[in-house]
């Protein structure tokens, strides 16, 4: 068993590997700061590349989702450089704020996939990610297992939480700034037909953070939106607590925290955005239902859904985005002939 419940590895652990994939896009600041404060060197894999995806594809079960394959690719990428990986297990005790089971199975899945390489994996189990107290306990227990003093661990965790909060705030601020810039532009242009046409459409990308911010996966989509003159806002950058609260107006029984945050953010921003581009990794379990819900429930905002898999090239993306943004423009202008 390579997953460390206690410090039982033969080799000393100095360098901890953090694959730049899946929830690293959400909790990366927390993880990096925590381990650094505890005195470890953290090694984060580089941005996703073709080689990483191919390595992940080779290691994965064919049917696994793209995001999962990318994760395994990142593990393979830095396996030789690190003494151990940090891979937490996030369970779904709260039926309304859980995760895709992928995040629960991840440490064991990685361990069994790479069993021949005998990876050391440091892990912890968080059964409710929104319960701050229990989450803290899980991290402190893990630090203690690794040999840290409790007081030291507490300090490290505090810094880690602060770092994560700062990162989250920066993203939320970025989103707010984007939105306010477009709104300002709209205000200035209001009443002037020619200027109004110049206002770029504000496009909300609704996607899990590890899809939205992995350039290799969705970079083509962002570029296409910008080339077509759109301005991008990311739903996942919205203030998480506010979005979560708002999401209960979207659905009572939606089981996944991240989808809730995306839904809540979409509702919060529905009045200021011109269109939604939702992006899923194929085949995404939660999104297979969530996208349908989104289409049904955010009915008054035009929506384009794109599914990305390991094989699809970027060929179709540009055309689809372009025509979508054309539709938004024509819609605003009230028809083709005015264009």
């Amino acid at each position: 068993m390579a997953i460390l419940e206690t410090v039982n590895s033969g080799r000393p652990i100095r360098r901890i590997g953090l694959p730049r994939a899946l929830l690293h896009y959400r909790y990366g600041a927390l993880w990096e700061t925590f381990f650094q404060e505890l005195g470890y060197e953290t090694i984060v894999s580089g941005p996703t590349t073709k080689a990483i995806l191919e390595a992940g594809d080779r290691a994965s079960i064919d049917e696994a989702c793209l995001a999962s394959k990318v994760y395994l690719g990142h593990v393979a990428q830095i396996a030789d450089e690190v003494d151990a990986f940090f891979i937490p297990s996030l369970a779904s005790v709260d039926h309304r704020k859980g995760f895709c089971t992928k995040f629960q199975s991840l440490p064991d899945m990685v361990d069994n996939t790479f069993r021949d390489q005998k990876l050391d994996i440091i892990s912890l189990s968080i059964d409710d990610a929104t319960d701050e107290k229990r989450t803290q306990t899980a991290y402190l227990d893990m630090a203690t297992r690794l040999g840290a003093l409790k007081s030291h661990a507490k300090k490290a965790y505090k810094k880690a939480v602060t770092a994560q909060a700062a990162a989250d705030e920066a993203r939320a601020a970025h989103l707010a700034e984007t939105v306010s810039l477009v709104e300002k532009y709209r205000k200035v242009a209001a009443g002037h037909v020619q200027e109004e046409k110049q206002v770029p459409p504000l496009i909300l990308i609704v996607a899990h953070p590890y899809i939205a911010h992995d350039r290799y996966i969705s970079g083509d989509i962002e570029d296409a939106i910008e080339r077509s003159g759109g301005v991008i806002a990311f739903a996942d950058e919205h203030d998480h607590a506010k979005a979560l609260k708002r999401s209960y107006g979207f659905s009572e029984t939606l089981p996944w925290l991240i989808n809730r945050e995306l839904a809540g953010a979409t509702l919060e921003l529905a009045d200021v955005i011109d269109g939604i581009v939702s992006v899923s990794a194929f085949p995404c379990g939660p999104d297979s239902l969530f996208t349908d819900a989104l289409m049904r429930r955010v009915g008054n905002v035009p929506l384009l859904h794109l599914t990305i898999d390991a094989q699809s090239g970027s060929a179709g993306v540009q055309t689809r985005i372009e025509s979508f943004i054309d539709i938004l423009r024509f819609k605003k202008e009230g028809g083709y002939l005015d264009a």
Partner: peptide, 16 residues
Amino acid sequence: CAGCTPEIDAIPVIRR
């Protein structure tokens, strides 16, 4: 069934 995430993730373990 197709796309069953938890059972897909069980396969590496079953293989072992």
